[in-house]
Design a binder for these strands. Structure first.
Lengths: 243, 243
DNA sequence: ACATAAAGTCGACTCTGGTCGACTTTATTG
DNA sequence: CAATAAAGTCGACCAGAGTCGACTTTATGT
């Protein structure tokens, strides 16, 4: 679940420096705090700007001096959350684990985090993957950060000869990111019920990518078995949903 | 660009059969026709339900007897478009081309189609990949159809020994779909400026999937060169966007 | 300290998606 | 051909996102 304190701390540290009077923009804090609480309690749609304003102790029109749309409030919150999530991720990562494990671990951690609140995750994913014309997520930092981490894992893997020396790491990175997005989408389409299923799928996909098309056959039989099971579940679910 | 006639024809053929009196639901037609025109002319957001109703020659409240939300109108339209697009795709496909070409061709065709109207494509993609709780796209038929076609191409490829006999086709299909989604997302994030770029990327990714991590090295040098160029463009764009 | 500008605040308003309930048309049945 | 039910239609309304302009507070210059 999402935390309140972090959001606020991040907001404060990030932008302002000298001008003391801008402490007034503690109002921004108040808005975000109220937003997090209400959004989590009643959902984004079900929270009106009027309510939100009152919860923050200000008038509705005042909000628009800080955020220009409701969506912007939501995204401001999400960005800070994601930044925080990364900082957690960093600590968890085991740089000496086999490459596949590192990659799957990274993806699962992020997946878990993003979907910890279903609605938030959905809105966020929509906005990130298919941004509106005006939406300028400041999260390009985050993107970069994420890519650097992924790239780091790949380079280390290459150093340890888990990857061919002449392998195109950028392409591979994109490739892996594609797998992550795919899993996220499957989750929201109801094909993946939980993170255990996601992990089975991701492991199969990553192995297929790194070790070739028939990788599963040459791997851990338990892994292969799990995937076979999951496959059946997929087919079943698709059928049920349609009839 | 999107056509009007097809939408309507599809709508009519699909649902009704005996009951003549339901010809009254030509109103549905009228709504969709008006919607297509107005949505395309002024954009979805910029078209009000009032306008839409008037353009269809009815009162606003009447619309809600046919569609329960604005989004539903939009999606109804999209679904029919996509069904139509598939029927076109079918004719184009060359079952004897090399597998990579077939796959890339299929993806590019779909990509081209979906993005032929930027806004429509974005909204559609959002809804398909991260559907809301209540959104029940009837497009599971379409999904199935799409998957069957992909699977068909893969099976044929396997028959021709372009794929190992013991390769997991379902997993591979998911994998390929992931690459498609990734490209679509990159397009909307501004990393891909046009379909030529998309094709270079997709070809590189598909080759990496089918032929292994170092596939590009062993391939057509021209292909590899194009990808190297595109890589530079990516890095450049990401930088520019941030500063 | 005062004047003036700038920033912040908010009540009242507009606009639009969606609902409600009364009204009109069409179909059914004895 | 009524009588009655069912479906279709829409004016009037509601709620919520976002805007406007007047008012209040704070900062700046003299």
């Amino acid at each position: 679940m999402f935390r309140i304190s972090t959001v606020v701390d991040f907001a404060e540290k990030s932008c302002m420096a000298g001008i003391r009077e801008q402490k007034k923009s503690a109002t921004r804090k108040a808005i975000l705090i109220a937003a997090v609480r209400l959004f989590a309690e009643k959902g984004v749609e079900q929270t009106s700007m009027e309510e939100l304003a009152r919860a923050a102790g200000i008038g509705k029109a005042t909000i628009y001096g800080y955020f220009s749309t409701k969506k912007e409030i939501f995204l401001a919150y999400c960005e800070e959350e994601v930044a925080y999530a990364f900082s957690i991720l960093e600590r968890k990562q085991d740089e000496d684990a086999p490459l596949t494990e590192q990659l799957v671990g990274l993806m699962i951690a992020q997946l878990t985090y993003v979907t910890s609140n279903r609605e938030f995750g959905r809105l966020f994913a929509r906005e990130i993957m298919f941004p509106g014309e005006q939406t300028t997520l400041a999260s390009h930092d985050l993107d970069r950060h994420y890519m650097q981490r992924l790239m780091g894992a790949l380079s280390r893997g290459q150093g340890r000869s888990e990857l061919p020396a002449d392998c195109d790491l950028l392409l591979l990175m994109g490739h892996l990111h594609a797998l992550y997005l795919f899993s996220l989408s499957l989750f929201y389409q109801g094909d993946l019920a939980n993170m255990d299923e996601a992990e089975i799928l991701l492991r199969a996909l990553v192995m297929q990518t790194l070790n070739g098309l028939t990788a599963l056959l040459h791997a851990d039989t338990q892994e292969a078995e799990r995937w076979e099971e999951l496959k059946l579940i997929f087919l079943l679910r698709r059928h049920l949903k349609f009839e």
